[in-house]
Write a protein that binds this DNA or RNA. Structure first.
Length: 350
DNA sequence: CAACCGTGGAG
DNA sequence: TCTCCAAGGTT
């Protein structure tokens, strides 16, 4: 691992920030000001999610709920509807809880430090550092995937970034490098660098503004960084989705358990099966609907399976009209099921 | 610590 | 089609 002296650190800060001031993504909507609420919303949305995807959601969210007080007073249904399709829905519920915590428990006074910000639900070390530095000027590195990638190359850090304990190594290496005058800009500059000249695939290190500080590039081993062990493949699981209507043409839904995958969301009643031979009812499609999560791959078969006793449904099931359904936030997989069902209906009408 | 938790884009 | 992964946090 490289060890920079103070002269190198000073020069690096200057070169990085000069580039950032010229070519940084200043137009990103959450960079219009440093309101901690805007930073919080954007950072929660950006967790494991691409900037291009977030922009639309962010603008819509801020228009609907412009202040932390608005969010604290909002119904969870609205919050989830604004988050619909973005995934990792615990982020939305945590964001809602965090707003209530700030407004109701702290009388609207934001925690300002790296340590205190981590008391907010959904706010861990990265997000706390981002808010503390950008909104409150604390000198702390916001170590995310960009930081792992950029500094593993610059400093030739060989630790496996997939291991949680590696965060400590990076923190100790980077903390002295953060610009004490402009910590928020320093952090955002590293992120911009990490998505441009120092991105994951096909980085353009030759033209990077900090090329001369890049030890891995200097030694011709840039492709070896960051060191990262591979993830496991998603487990394949087969499901049947029950298609059943009541006498008013409403469709049967089932609410998922309040913890776990897609917690509390409504979907068609889903039942896991070992193989398609186990499907109950008439199979409606030739191919399954495939939906891949981080750790699971669902192959779902629609089956026609009417409910015999509509008056005696389990408590977590209900019939919903299309109008009732449209008011609900539904996970993407359920939208896929509905799209497929609509196609089946269209074909049968011909 | 390792597993869990969504989705869409890129190669 | 398949693999990886993108501004991580919680349990």
């Amino acid at each position: 691992m490289e060890n920079w002296n103070q002269t190198t650190i000073n020069a690096f800060r200057k070169d990085l920030l000069a580039w950032y001031d010229q070519e940084g993504r200043a137009a990103l909507p959450w960079r219009q000001n440093t309101d901690p609420y805007r930073i919080l919303v954007s950072e929660l949305m950006l967790q494991q999610t691409r900037v291009d995807t977030v922009i639309t959601y962010f603008n819509r969210f801020m228009e609907a709920l412009p202040t932390v007080a608005d969010l604290a007073a909002a119904d969870e249904d609205l919050v989830l509807k604004l988050w619909e399709g973005l995934g990792y829905y615990s982020r939305a519920r945590n964001l809602h809880k965090a707003a209530k915590y700030v407004v109701n428990d702290l009388q609207g006074h934001w925690p300002e430090s790296y340590d205190d910000l981590q008391d907010l639900p959904g706010v861990g070390p990265y997000t706390a550092a981002a808010i503390a530095s950008i909104a409150f000027g604390q000198v702390v590195p916001a170590i995310d995937g960009n930081f792992f990638r950029v500094f593993s190359r610059l400093l030739k850090i060989d630790d496996d970034i997939a291991q949680p304990k590696t965060r400590k190594v990076f923190y100790q290496a980077i903390e002295p490098i953060v610009d004490p005058e402009r910590p928020g800009d320093f952090n955002q500059a590293i992120m911009d660098l990490g998505t441009t000249y120092m991105k994951t695939d096909n980085p353009d290190t030759l033209h990077s503004p900090v090329k001369k500080y890049n030890a891995a590039f200097r030694d011709g081993v840039e492709d070896q960084y960051p060191v990262k062990t591979k993830k496991k493949k998603p487990v394949r699981q087969i499901y049947q989705a029950q298609v059943a209507y009541d006498d008013q043409g409403r469709l049967l839904y089932e609410q998922r358990p309040k913890t776990g995958l897609l917690a509390n969301f409504w979907t068609l009643p889903l039942k896991q099966v070992e193989s398609i031979e186990e499907l109950a009812g008439k199979q409606l499609t030739l191919k399954p609907i495939v939906h891949v999560f981080s750790h699971r791959r669902w192959e779902i078969w629609l089956v026609d399976l009417p409910v015999k006793n509509q008056q005696n449904l389990p408590t977590n099931m209900t019939f919903l009209s299309s109008k009732e359904q449209e008011a609900l936030a539904l996970p993407k997989v359920q939208h896929k099921l509905l799209d497929q069902l609509k196609e089946v209906d269209d074909v049968s009408k011909r």
